Simulated assay, not measured.
Amino acid sequence: MVTPLIENYLDHSDEKKARKALLAVSITTVMFACLDFSSNQLALLGIELIIHQDRVVGFGKLASGVLLFIYLVKSLPAYTALLKELSVERLKRSEALKKRKFEADWDLDIPPDHGYGPQGDYDAIESEIQHRRAQIEERYSRMTFFVSALTIMFVDIGVPVIVGTIATTQPEIVLHMIDTVPANTH
């Protein structure tokens, strides 16, 4: 029976769980590939086990490859939905720009006449404030959507795919990268 802690990390029934399982197995594989064992024997509770690092890393590579495939398949619907949402948002912005250009070309963008006197001036101020507020909300909604899309692309999809690919193909490369970075001697 698998412990609940390990079961939570190796469960791949949805995209988030598949990402957790992929990252957990991939990072463990990279860690085992970077470790140096002084002996391939391990004694637990009087039972002596012989551990071959190359077999453990090979199994981790295989498991990482399978989990990478599962993650890619599980994340396709979310990725497709993101692309659809990006396309719809781009279409809405394009439509709004074309409408504004059309209104400007045909002089349809003339502000309404709010009349004379204090109430007319007050209505003109309110109209200007609402127009500016709409512009700010539109600008920041585009920015927020763009940042959210980048976050999903790079963090939720990109990082697990990169880590899974490294663990599947060459987990030893991380050790080489660590060795090339000079240690801070301060």
Results as ranks from 00 to 15, higher is better:
Phe146Gln: 09
Asp109Ala: 07
Thr151Cys: 05
Glu137Gly: 15
Gly120Phe: 08
Phe59Trp: 10
Ile125Met: 11
Asp107Val: 05
Lys99Arg: 13
Ser94Tyr: 09
Ser141Tyr: 09
Glu138Leu: 13
Gly120Leu: 09
Ile162Thr: 05
Pro111Leu: 02
Pro160Trp: 01
Lys98Phe: 12
Phe102Cys: 05
Lys101Ser: 05
Glu128Lys: 10
Lys98Glu: 05
Arg139Phe: 15
Met153Ser: 09
Phe102Pro: 04
Gly115Gln: 04
Leu68Ser: 07
Phe154Val: 04
Gln130Cys: 08
Glu128Asn: 09
Lys101Gly: 00
Val161His: 00
Phe145Pro: 03
Arg100Leu: 13
Leu97Glu: 15
Val155Cys: 03
Met153Thr: 12
Thr144Ile: 14
Phe146Pro: 06
Thr151Asn: 07
Leu62Glu: 02
Lys101Cys: 01
Arg93Pro: 01
Glu128Cys: 03
Leu83Asp: 10
Thr151Met: 07
Asp156Asn: 06
Tyr140Lys: 03
Glu85Cys: 00
Gly117Cys: 04
Lys74Trp: 02
Met143Asp: 14
Phe145Asp: 01
Leu67Ala: 00
Arg93Lys: 13
Phe59Lys: 04
Lys61Arg: 10
Arg132Trp: 12
Tyr122Asn: 10
Ile162Phe: 07
Val73Gly: 02
Lys74Asn: 07
Ser64Ala: 10
Tyr140Glu: 15
Leu68Met: 07
Gly120Pro: 06
Thr80Ala: 12
Leu83His: 10
Ser141Lys: 09
Arg90Cys: 05
Thr80Gly: 04
Asp105Ser: 09
Pro112Thr: 02
Tyr71Phe: 13
Lys98Leu: 09
Leu86Pro: 00
Phe69Arg: 00
Ser94Asn: 11
Gln119Lys: 08
Asp121Ala: 13
Leu108Val: 02
Phe146Met: 13
Ala149His: 06
Pro160Gln: 05
Gln135Ala: 11
Leu76Asn: 03
Val161Pro: 03
Glu126Ser: 07
Lys84Gly: 05
Phe59Ala: 10
Asp107Tyr: 15
Gln135His: 13
Leu150Trp: 04
Trp106Met: 10
Phe146Ser: 07
His131Tyr: 11
Val88Ala: 12
Ser87Trp: 12
Thr151Arg: 08
Ile110Gly: 03
Leu97Arg: 09
Asp121Phe: 11
Phe154Tyr: 04
Ser127Arg: 02
Arg90Gln: 15
His114Ile: 11
Lys74His: 08
Arg100Ile: 04
Ser127Asn: 14
His131Thr: 14
Glu138Ser: 15
Val147Arg: 07
His131Val: 12
Glu95Cys: 01
Asp105Val: 03
Gln119Glu: 12
Arg90Asp: 08
Gly60His: 01
Pro77Arg: 06
Ala63Cys: 04
Val155Gln: 05
Tyr140Asn: 09
Arg142Leu: 15
Phe102Trp: 13
Ala81Cys: 01
Ser87Thr: 14
Val155His: 06
Ala78Ser: 13
Arg100Glu: 13
His114Gln: 07
Leu72Tyr: 02
Pro111Tyr: 07
